[in-house]
C-alpha cells in the first residue's frame, strides 16, 4: 500500500473535522478498504478510523421499540446483541463472512460501501431502516442509489442505523461458492402496515425492492402469492457463478423460503 496518515478520533466531531482534509477517507472495519489499499488501488492521504468513537458502538432498543445500531458496531456484536431484539437482523449479521470478518467489519462500513452482493444493504432496505449520519437522517429507500453508490456526501459519516422491528422477518442468502457473499440474498420483513422485500447480490443496480412481490404478499402472505411472479433477468448480474436467468430464478426461490421462515 501507499503511505497515508492514520488518525483515530474519539468523537464524531473530531472525525468529521479530520475527514475534511483532502483525500482523507473514513475507515470502518476495513474489510474492503484494506485489501484495496494493499493492491494499491486507492491512495487516500489519511485514514480516519471510526472505531475509537464510543457513541458509534453497540446495539440499543429505542423508546419506540426500534433497534439502533452504532455505525462502528461489528457484525459479531450485532449477531450477539440484537439476537433478542431483532433476531432476523442478528442472524444476517451472523452469516456475514467468517469470524475474522465479523469481528472487524462494521455495519456502517458495509452500508456506506453498498457492495452489490453485501448482506446489510438488504437488511436495511428490507427493514425500511433509517441511516443516521452526522448531519441528517436518510430513509433506506433514498439511501441506496446503485452499485457502490449511496446518498452519502463527501465526509459524511454513518453514525447509526435505526431499524424498525417487524412482526416477522427472514434473510435467505444463497452463497456465491467462492466469496460466500450473496449470489442472491432476500431480506423479507412483515410489518403491520405491509411487507418489504429487498434483494441483494442479483442486480447490476445493487440492492433493490421487489415491489411486485411486496404487493402480492400484502394481498396474501403465503408462498403461493408469488405464483406467476418473476423478476426480469435483464438487469441481473451475469458472471462466472451464475447467469442473469439463474439469479432471477433464485430471487423467487429465496423469497419463497423467506416467506416460509416467517410463517
Amino acid at each position: 500500500m501507499y503511505n497515508f496518515e492514520f488518525e483515530k478520533p474519539s468523537t464524531i466531531a473530531d472525525a468529521v473535522a479530520a475527514l475534511g482534509s483532502e483525500d482523507a477517507q473514513a475507515l470502518g472495519g476495513g474489510q474492503t478498504l484494506i485489501p484495496t489499499l494493499k493492491q494499491r488501488l486507492a491512495s487516500p492521504s489519511a485514514l480516519i478510523s471510526l472505531n475509537g468513537i464510543a457513541e458509534m458502538q453497540g446495539v440499543c432498543v429505542d423508546d419506540d421499540g426500534s433497534v439502533s445500531i452504532g455505525g462502528a458496531t461489528t457484525h459479531a456484536t450485532v449477531a450477539a446483541e440484537a439476537a433478542s431484539s431483532y433476531p432476523a437482523l442478528a442472524a444476517l449479521a451472523g452469516q456475514i463472512g467468517d469470524p475474522a470478518v465479523r469481528n472487524r467489519g462494521t455495519i456502517g462500513g458495509s452500508i456506506a460501501n453498498n457492495d452489490p452482493a453485501a448482506c446489510y444493504p438488504a437488511g436495511a432496505l428490507g427493514s425500511g431502516a433509517t441511516i443516521v449520519t452526522n448531519t441528517r437522517q436518510i430513509g433506506a429507500d433514498d439511501f441506496f442509489e446503485g452499485m457502490f453508490s449511496t446518498a452519502l456526501d463527501e465526509g459524511e459519516i454513518i453514525t447509526a442505523v435505526r431499524f424498525p422491528v417487524p412482526q416477522a422477518a427472514s434473510y435467505q442468502k444463497f452463497l456465491q461458492p467462492a466469496s460466500r457473499f450473496a449470489l442472491v440474498g432476500v431480506y423479507l420483513a412483515r410489518f403491520a402496515d405491509g411487507v418489504r422485500v429487498a434483494v441483494t447480490g442479483a442486480s447490476e443496480d445493487g440492492v433493490f425492492r421487489w415491489s411486485e412481490a411486496e404487493q402480492a404478499l400484502n394481498g396474501a402472505f403465503r408462498t403461493d402469492a408469488l405464483m406467476g411472479l418473476s423478476i426480469n433477468p435483464m438487469n441481473m448480474i451475469s458472471d462466472l457463478h451464475g447467469s442473469k436467468e439463474y439469479r432471477a430464478h433464485l430471487v423467487g426461490v429465496m423469497t419463497k423460503r423467506a416467506i416460509e421462515a416467517c410463517m
Binding site: 461458492p177 467462492a178 458472471d239 462466472l240
Partner: peptide, 24 residues
C-alpha cells in the same frame, strides 16, 4: 468436481484471479 474453476475471458484476462472468484 463441484467448485474450482480457473477461467479466462476471451482477451486472456484471468477471471478467477483471487479467492473471491476461485472457489476452494
Amino acid at each position: 468436481a463441484l467448485l474450482e474453476n480457473c477461467a479466462y475471458d476471451e482477451n486472456g484476462q484471468l477471471l478467477s484471479a483471487s479467492f473471491m472468484d476461485y472457489a476452494m
